[in-house]
Nucleic acid binder design. Structure first.
Lengths: 176, 176
DNA sequence: ATATGTGAATAGGTTCACAGCC
DNA sequence: GGCTGTGAACCTATTCACATAT
């Protein structure tokens, strides 16, 4: 498959795609294009998703529950193996397959299961406190859904998903 | 408040913040800093969120339901006023305050209520089809949660939220 | 004295254009 | 002939440095 076809599927330009791949090595064959299976495999290896990655989720509210039920992570190589909440036994609207533990069990779990990534869906008011706790427990990457800027050591990776900002962006560009 | 303090809160550098504001006008007072109330107001005006913006949501599954219950949009000036689903009467785990309509009511609703923005939380397999329908109905901005690249006319704004990509990003950077 | 607003300098990212290989 | 890989050219974004205003 050519870089042009791949780029169309990804929503970028062919040269962009080729340049980006070039940063990690050479993947294609001149005159022929890319072997999609081999390319996919090598990208998974680079991303570290060729083996299933365990992930934990902190904060089992509305959004947390929805993400625990979301099937889209598995085929990309991620599994949310457990959830943690300040009130693990509170009644919830939905049945989920993952266990919900109290916060006091987090550090032990992370160490025993060697979990490196956490999804943070707690209220903004406690997000920093919980983040500190995650870092101390040995988490190295946080997917943060709270609308605050987390202060973490610089060897900790934080990705922010801020839904209000996404809407604000749309709002700005959809004004006539 | 100084650009330094604002920048710290936003997680950027002071010069970045000043330069960005400069693209829209002059907001601060030399020697003094920024009047936070006035700045906030002027930014809301620019973003178009100083009046409440109506938003609709399409696809009332796990994630859609969670977003319908999410309280974080209101204080940023957005309200999800209605939801649409191929099967509006299906039993759902959670009680929500918004009405759920069938897809056949969408176009009429959008026109009558003058809605410009939609949150798309349908399965990937139907996302493009639904997006076409949204565009035809007069929607100008789409917040897309399905993991596909939507093809839309260029005057339509699409923002993508792809949770698997966020995790892949973390996975890459948390490999030792 | 203090902190903005902004040209100039720098860094980073994208696209072009084509040599190199199938 | 076709399509990749990549230096060079171009464009955009960030940071610096300081004149300017309070």
């Amino acid at each position: 498959m050519s870089s042009e076809a791949l780029a169309r599927a990804a929503g970028v330009k062919p040269t962009q795609l080729r340049k980006d791949l070039a940063y990690f090595g050479t993947f294609g064959t001149r005159g022929l294009g890319y072997d999609v299976g081999a390319l996919s495999k090598r990208i998974s290896d680079k991303l570290g998703t060729s083996r299933l990655q365990p992930v934990i989720l902190i904060g089992v509210g509305n959004l947390g529950l929805a993400l625990l039920s979301y099937r889209g992570f598995e085929k990309e190589g991620f599994e949310i193996i457990a959830a943690f909440d300040a009130d693990p036994h509170r009644k919830r609207d939905k049945q989920i397959k993952q266990p919900i533990y109290g916060m006091d069990e987090l550090a032990g779990f992370v160490k025993k299961q060697n979990v490196k990534m956490a999804i943070l869906t707690v209220p903004a008011s406690v997000a920093q406190e919980v983040a500190n706790y995650l870092v101390e427990a040995g988490i190295a990457g946080i997917l943060n859904f709270s609308p605050i800027v987390l202060a973490v050591p610089e060897d900790i990776m934080v990705n922010n998903v801020n839904l209000a900002i996404e809407l604000e962006n749309l709002s700005y560009f959809t004004q006539e």
